[in-house]
Design a protein around this nucleic acid. Structure first.
Lengths: 145, 145
DNA sequence: TTCTAAATTGATAACGATTCTCATTTAATA
DNA sequence: TATTAAATGAGAATCGTTATCAATTTAGAA
């Protein structure tokens, strides 16, 4: 399914910026991009999508359920495709590498916990902070100090 | 244990600002306070602790392990006492009420997941977003729209 | 295809949370 | 008590993000 079709199905006007940004996320190579990441990637390939528009489009795509907001690291938000199954994230505290993992047992348990407290679950955020200590990670850690 | 003693044990100089802020968190009534929350609470009772100092002290107390940073809501950080057992949070998406809950089964599972991916677990963040729909919550939701 | 109204965009100002700077004050200790 | 390093207040600076507004583009009617 092309990004253009996706946008129409979502009830959004088909614009150049939205198509390029939706494509970026549909491209399987990328995930959890921040606004700045998106801006940088688009700047390399296309002229004239401003940072303000990137923020707006990310907001729009999130509002219609195409993207989902993540708070993996302090100080900024990232976005990922909002698939049916929500997966969780493992973040290296040293080199900031991010891995996704699926924990299929979670959702029901989380729902039960929410219900026990009289809440009705909307979604959850589980982030495991850990160090990966790969050679690349160590190199990066040194650079930062 | 008084906050002064706590600070000394942590290797921090005993200053007025640090003692007041540590006390605020040791007082069992409060938890998950943002810098602005702390500033506001101190302003009522004590003169002359600047917002800059609040941020610095919160950072210091986090660095020595007395507090722990939380990212419960978008746009700002909150802090809570860093007890041995880490508990998780349930946040109302409408009125922003926060409840803590303990899920004692989690830690081992999280550690296993990290290990499976070659990571070594440091800590985790689990936040359940849900609506509480209490009368107070509904009142607040209306106010915000 | 052309026209029109409404939605989107770029440029840039504004904002809120947080950090930094630096002169002044305070805590630890000799 | 005097010395020195650390902590503070005031305010400037920074960073991510949102808002403003005039100009452009889209979708759909004519």
């Amino acid at each position: 399914m092309s990004s253009g079709t996706t946008l129409q199905n979502l009830g959004l006007r088909k614009t150049y910026a939205r198509i390029q940004i939706a494509k970026l996320f549909e491209d399987s190579h990328v995930s959890h991009l921040s606004a700045k990441d998106v801006f940088a990637k688009l700047a390399k390939q296309h002229e004239g999508i401003s940072l303000g528009t990137v923020y707006r489009v990310l907001g729009d795509l999130t509002d219609v359920g195409f993207l989902r907001r993540l708070h993996l690291e302090e100080g900024f938000v990232s976005y990922e495709l909002n698939g049916k199954e929500q997966h969780d994230h493992l973040v290296c505290t040293k080199c900031h590498k991010v891995l996704q993992f699926d924990d299929f047992f979670d959702h029901d348990r989380y729902e039960a916990i929410a219900r026990q407290h009289g809440f009705s679950l909307s979604h959850h955020s589980l982030v495991l902070y850990a160090s990966c200590d790969t050679p690349a990670c160590k190199k990066q850690s040194i650079k930062e100090n």
